[in-house]
Design a protein around this nucleic acid. Sequence first.
DNA 1: GCGACAG
DNA 2: ATCTTGTCGC
Length: 236
Amino acid sequence: MSGKELGAPDLRPSLHGWELSASEARQLQGRLAERICLTPLQGQPETVAGIDCGIEANGHLRAVVSLFDYPAMNHVQTVIHRQPCVFPYVPGLLSFREMPAVLGAMEQLAQKPDLLLCDGQGIAHPRRLGIASHLGLWLNRPAIGVGKSRLVGCHEDPGQDKGCHTPLMDRGERIGTVLRTRTGVRPVYVSPGHLVDHADSMDWVLGTLSRYRLPEPIRAADRASRGPIPIRPALR
DNA sequence: GCGACAG
DNA sequence: ATCTTGTCGC
């Protein structure tokens, strides 16, 4: 995947890059959110990627993309990109902290994944632009947000059995699905990011689960994001 | 002013 | 996100 196809000029946070204030970031989110498309998933994905970020003790972000094929769900490759983090963690502005590193990891892939599963929210966000939405819009790829906890919205508790779900609502509109991915464990917060709808988002999360709470691609990315600093392949 | 608040 | 031991349950 060449670097030049990334970062469409009109999506760049500023002319200079990702240096912007919190209020500027919120304004930008409002404009980008208008461009999010909630549609049934088009075509059959042949590759599904899990995306996650970890923070190292030295203050570096470690972004991981774990690629799987579909429907076999065999692991294809995992890429890791580290860089200093510049933007602080502010609830609602997560993408401005993590996306630069994620894009760095994404450039190591030969091909853009057909479907992105992100650790965090999609449109289940105060301004409807969680990290899954922001990333899906930037890469022009279907993206689904899978949050381990709630950012915004109200919901009933889904039943205790795997597969039970309830709608996540905010300001009178549906923004996601509270989904029990495993019997007896805390539900996850599934929301479309871009180029996918509520029903397909839930189906793809259920369809990429193994026996754990999170979809396998996200688990793989999560493990790599917290593991020891990977040893570079030996030269020669 | 107070409480909530992805990772 | 990260710090951390034992413990409860399938």
